[in-house]
Amino acid sequence: MKRQDYDLAKILKYENVAWFSDGIVRILDRRYYPAEERYVDCKTHLEVAAAIRDMVTQSAGPYTAAGMGMTLAAFNNRELKGDELMAVLEDAGEALSTARPTTTSRMRVVTKGCLEAAKNADKDGREPYQAIFDRTIDSLNRRYKVMQIVGDNLASLFKEDSVIMTQCYGETVVGTMLRAANRMGIKPKFVVPETRPFLQGAKLTASVIHEMGFELKLISDNMAAWAISHYGVNLFTSAADTITTDGYVVNKVGTLQIAILAKHFGVPYYVTGIPDDVAINDVDIEFRNPNEITSFMGLRTTLEGVEGIYPAFDITPPELVTGYVTDRGILMLDELKEYKKEKTEFY
C-alpha cells in the first residue's frame, strides 16, 4: 500500500496526526505546534476523547484520533471476547464520537466502521485491536486519496497570479491543493488569517504553506477586509466541518464574515469537502468554554468578571457560496442533493 502522505508537510504525516503503538495513542499537540513539538500520550480511549475535546487535534485530526482511540480500547480490553468486548467498544465509540458535538454524526461513521472491523477480525485471524488499527490506516489512506481529488479540483481554479485567502486549517485539502499546485508548476500566493483563539491559521495552515514552498502573508482576523481590498485577494476558500445537502457551510467561526466580505468585494468563495446527508436544522453548533476567549495560552487577557462567548462554528448560507469543491467536481447548489445518490466512502 502506497501511503498517501507523500510530499506533504510534517503535520500531515500519519504518525503526527494520531498513532497507536505499544498501548499508547500519541497525538501531536497542535495547540503548541510549531513553536514546540509536543505530543500527548493517551493510555485510555477516554484520554483520547479528552484530547479531541480539548483541541489537542482538530479539523480532520479527530477522525484519525477516534480510530486510534478505538484501537486502544480494544487493546486495553483484549482479554475480553465476543459480546463483552463489543459492549466495551460500543461505549468507547460513543465517548469518542460525542467528544465534540458538531462533528458527532461524522465521528459515528468512523467508530461504527471500527466496530465492524472488530466483529470481523477473526475471519482472517487478526486480533480485534489490530483489525481496528488496520482499518484506521486504510481510512486515512482513502481519505487522503479522495482529498487529493478535491485538492486537484480546487487547484484547477488557481492561476500563477492568484492570491488566495484561507480560513482556519482545512487539514488534508491544504496539503493536497499545494501538492497539486506544485505538480502543475504554479505558485499562487496566500493570505492566511490567524484564527483566534487557538491560532490554527497561524500555527497550522501557515506552517504547511510555508513548508511546501509557497509565499504567504499572515494577518490577524480583523484584517480580512483590508487584505481583500488592498492585497489583491481574488479567491477565498475554506474547508467545512459540514456541507449540508441544502447548501449551508458549517465551519470554524469567522468563515461567515469572510464570505460576506468576499461577496461584497466580488471575490468568489469555494468551499471544499464531502457533502453530508444532513439538513442545517439538524446541526448542533458547539459552544466552547468562554475561558478560551478571556485568556490566551494560559494568560488571562481580561479583568476578572469579564465574560466571553465562544461559538466554535458559524453557518454560511448558500447564497454566499460560489461553488462546492468535491471529489466529483465543482458542484453548484442544485447538484448537492444528487451527490449522495452515489455514496463516497470517506471515513
Rank of each mutant, 00 (worst) to 15 (best):
K340C: 09
K159S: 13
T98A: 07
V253S: 14
R179N: 13
L216W: 04
V267W: 00
Y32N: 11
L85Q: 01
I137F: 12
A180I: 04
Y324K: 03
L303A: 15
R53T: 09
A206V: 04
R3L: 11
Q257C: 10
A131G: 02
D22V: 01
F313A: 03
A18K: 01
D41W: 01
L72A: 05
D134I: 06
Y231D: 12
A121I: 05
F190G: 06
E160K: 08
E335G: 09
A73L: 05
Y129V: 04
D91E: 15
P311H: 03
A180R: 01
E304P: 08
V146L: 14
D134M: 08
V192M: 07
A131Y: 04
D241Q: 04
D284L: 14
R30Q: 15
F75H: 10
G67K: 03
G61A: 11
T326L: 09
G67L: 04
M332Q: 14
T104E: 15
D246L: 00
N222E: 09
L46K: 14
R108Q: 12
C42F: 02
V56Y: 01
L115Y: 04
R106Q: 12
Q257R: 11
S21W: 09
H210N: 14
T301Y: 00
F265P: 00
I285E: 05
L320V: 07
K340L: 14
L216T: 01
G170N: 11
N16I: 08
T98G: 01
K2F: 10
F75D: 08
I315F: 03
V150N: 01
K343H: 13
P193V: 09
G82V: 02
N222G: 08
M184A: 14
K187R: 15
Y39G: 04
A60H: 14
E345N: 13
T272E: 10
G69T: 01
G93D: 04
V174F: 01
F214N: 00
Y6F: 12
T322E: 11
